[in-house]
Design a protein around this nucleic acid. Structure first.
Lengths: 334, 334
DNA sequence: CTGAAAGCGCTAACAG
DNA sequence: CTGTTAGCGCTTTCAG
C-alpha cells in the first residue's frame, strides 16, 4: 500500500486535516507548520490519492475526448490542442476512438460518465440518432460538440467556419480566372462537408459564367482518386478542382499524375484543412486552412470555464475562422 | 448529485451490499433478486461511482500513455493500438504529450501516479537522466518503455527490431545493384535511430565495394531536405539513399524534385516506418515497415497482464519484426 | 442467500 | 491556527 495522508500527519506530528490544508494551500496554517508538513511529505514522496479527493469534491479533473480515429491527422491536431489546454487547467484527457460507430461513441460516453469526468468533447457521428442525443441531453456533465454547426440549445459547439471556407475557395478560383470548375466532396450526410459545398456553390454564383460539376464519394484518398478519374472522363475541359478535404485532394493529385495531367499547369487543385502534409506533397497544396489545434483548445476552454462556476452553465457556440493558404497547386488562367 | 447505490438499494428493497454483489456478478445472489436489482438500476440509469470503487479496490482501470507528440503519425498509430487494447481490457487511456522534454515527461509520470493509474506506457526521451530513471524505478506502478532497446532489468520494454530493419535496407539496396550509397539519419542520441544506422552499416559490409556516406540532422522533413541538399553537393555520384524515417525520406524526395533529380530514375530512396502517407507521396515510397499499432498493443497487453496477477510482475521484453514494403521509389541499377 | 458494519483516503464544516 | 468528526459511494468481511 502506498503512503497516505495519515503517514504524513503522524510523521510531522500534526493532524491529517492540517496536512490537507497545508497541501491544498488554504489559508489558516502557520507558515512554519506548513513548511514542515511540506518537507515531510516531500521526503516521504507522498502523493495524495486523487480518488479519495474526487470522492469528496465530486470533481475528477479529467476530461474525455471522443473522436473517430486519432490516426486521422486532423484529430491528432485537435487532440493536441485539447490536451494542452486541459493540462493547463489541471485536467487529464482520456482518449476515445469512436470510429464512426454511434453505439461505440455512446459506450464511451457512458464509460466516461462512470468515471465522473468533468466534461466531454465529442465529434458526434452523423448516424447518432435522436434517441442517442436525448441520452446526451440527460447527462449531468457538460458536453461540447465539435464540428456540428447546428447551434443546439442543449450543447455547446465548436466548429470551423466551413461555409465561409467554401466561399473563400470559390472567390479564389474565380479570381484566378477559372470558370469550368469541379467540386469533389465527401459524404452528403456530414455537416462539415455539406457546409463547405454550400459555401462554394454560393461563392460561385457571383460569376454567372461559371460552370460547376459536383461529385460525392467517401472522404478518403481513394475517394478523391475515383472521383477525379470519373471527372476526367466526363468533364475533361475542367480547369480547377476544389476538394472538400486535403485527403481528397491528395487522391486528386495522384489521379492527375496517372492521367498525365500536370498540376497546376493543366489543372488547378484546391484543398481544405491544411493538414501538415499539404505542404509536403508535390506540388505543395494550396488549401483552406482550418484551425484544428485551436478547435480542440476552444472546446477544452469551454469545459474548463464550466468548472469555475457550475451554476452559470450557459451554452456557448464558437465558430473559428478559416483562411486561404497559397502554395503551388493553383495557377492563374490564361 | 447523481444517483448512488443507496438509491438503488432503497428502490429495490434490499441492502446496498446485495446491490453491489448483484452488479458485480459475484456469486451468492438469488437469481430473482439479481434480476430485480438489475432492472431497477437500469431504470434509474444508475452509474456506479468509479472513484468510490477504486478507493477500496485500489485499481483505477486506467492506463497512462506518455509520448512526445500525438501529431506525429507514428505515435498516433501507437496510441490507437494502445487505446484499443486498453479498452478491450476494460481500461481507459490518458494521453500525455511529453514533447521531448524530460521534465515534462516526469511531471506526467507524477500526475499519473497521483491518479493511481494501473500502468504507464512511455517513450522515454534520451535526455532522461539517471536521476529520472531512478525515480521511475521507485514507482509502484508498472511501466513499459517504448522504443528503448536496452533490455533493462527494471522495466519491460517493447520495440521494433530497428537493427534488423537497417540490415534489411542494406541488403535490398545491394540486391538492386547500388554501391554508392548514402544514409541520412536523425539524432545520434536516439536509440531507435542509431540502431537502424548500425544495422545498415553492418548490412553493407557484406559488399566490399560499397561506399557509404552518413549524415545526421534532426529527424524532420526539413532535416531530410537539408541533408539531401548537402549530399548532392558533396556526393553527386550517389545512386541510393536510405533515410532513417519516412519523414526524413519526404524531405529527401522534396529536395530531389527541386534539384531536378528524378526518383527512382536518377536516384533511389528508401524510408523507414511506413507511415500512411508513404504510399501517397510521389513516387510512392519504398520503406521498411514498422508495426506501430502492434507496438502500442503489445505495451498495453503487458500492462493488462500485470493486472491479472500483481504478484508475478516479471519484466518482459518484446521485439517486434519489421519488413520491407516495396513501392516505387527504388529501382534496379544498370 | 442477505444484512450490518467497517473502512478505503481525503475534504470540509465545526469546535476549540 | 489546529484538532475532531462526519461523511463521499463503494466493496468486503463477518454474522445471521
Amino acid at each position: 500500500m502506498s503512503i497516505t495522508i495519515k503517514d504524513v500527519a503522524r510523521e510531522s506530528g500534526v493532524n491529517i486535516s492540517t496536512v490537507s490544508r497545508a497541501l491544498n494551500g488554504s489559508y489558516g496554517v502557520h507558515k512554519e507548520t506548513r513548511e514542515h508538513v511540506l518537507a515531510i511529505s516531500a521526503r516521504l514522496d507522498y502523493r495524495p490519492n486523487r480518488f479519495a479527493r474526487s470522492l469528496v469534491t465530486g470533481r475528477s479533473h479529467t476530461l474525455g475526448l471522443i473522436i473517430t480515429d486519432i490516426r486521422n491527422p486532423y484529430f491528432a491536431d485537435v487532440a493536441r490542442g485539447a490536451e494542452d489546454t486541459a493540462r493547463t487547467g489541471g485536467c487529464d484527457l482520456i482518449l476515445c476512438n469512436g470510429d464512426w460507430d454511434a453505439d461505440k461513441q455512446m459506450g464511451y460516453v457512458h464509460s466516461l460518465l462512470g468515471k465522473r469526468v468533468d466534461g466531454i468533447i465529442m465529434t458526434p457521428v452523423a448516424t447518432l440518432k435522436r434517441d442517442h442525443l436525448e441520452q446526451l441531453t440527460r447527462c449531468t456533465v457538460p458536453i461540447v460538440l465539435l464540428n456540428r454547426a447546428a447551434p443546439d440549445k442543449l450543447f455547446s459547439t465548436v466548429t470551423a467556419d466551413n461555409e465561409a471556407g467554401g466561399v473563400l475557395a470559390a472567390q479564389y478560383l474565380l479570381r484566378l480566372g477559372h470558370r469550368r470548375i469541379a467540386h469533389v466532396s465527401g459524404s452528403r450526410r456530414q455537416r462539415s462537408m455539406t457546409d463547405r459545398s454550400a459555401g462554394f456553390s454560393r461563392g460561385l454564383k457571383a460569376a454567372r459564367s461559371a460552370e460547376l460539376t459536383v461529385l460525392h464519394n467517401e472522404n478518403t484518398f481513394a475517394g478523391g482518386y475515383a472521383m477525379t478519374m470519373e471527372l476526367l472522363r466526363r468533364r475533361p475541359e475542367t480547369t480547377a478542382i476544389f476538394a472538400s478535404s486535403d485527403v481528397l485532394a491528395f487522391g486528386v493529385l495522384r489521379a492527375m499524375i496517372e492521367a498525365g495531367r500536370k498540376v497546376p499547369e493543366d489543372i488547378s487543385v484546391l484543398g481544405f484543412d491544411d493538414i501538415e502534409l499539404a505542404g509536403v506533397v508535390h506540388p505543395p497544396l494550396t488549401t483552406i486552412h482550418q484551425p484544428k489545434y485551436e478547435l480542440g483548445r476552444a472546446a477544452a476552454e469551454i469545459l474548463l470555464a464550466y468548472e469555475g462556476d457550475k451554476a452559470t452553465r450557459s451554452v456557448e457556440h464558437r465558430v473559428l475562422g478559416v483562411k486561404l493558404v497559397e502554395r503551388e497547386s493553383c495557377r492563374k488562367l490564361g
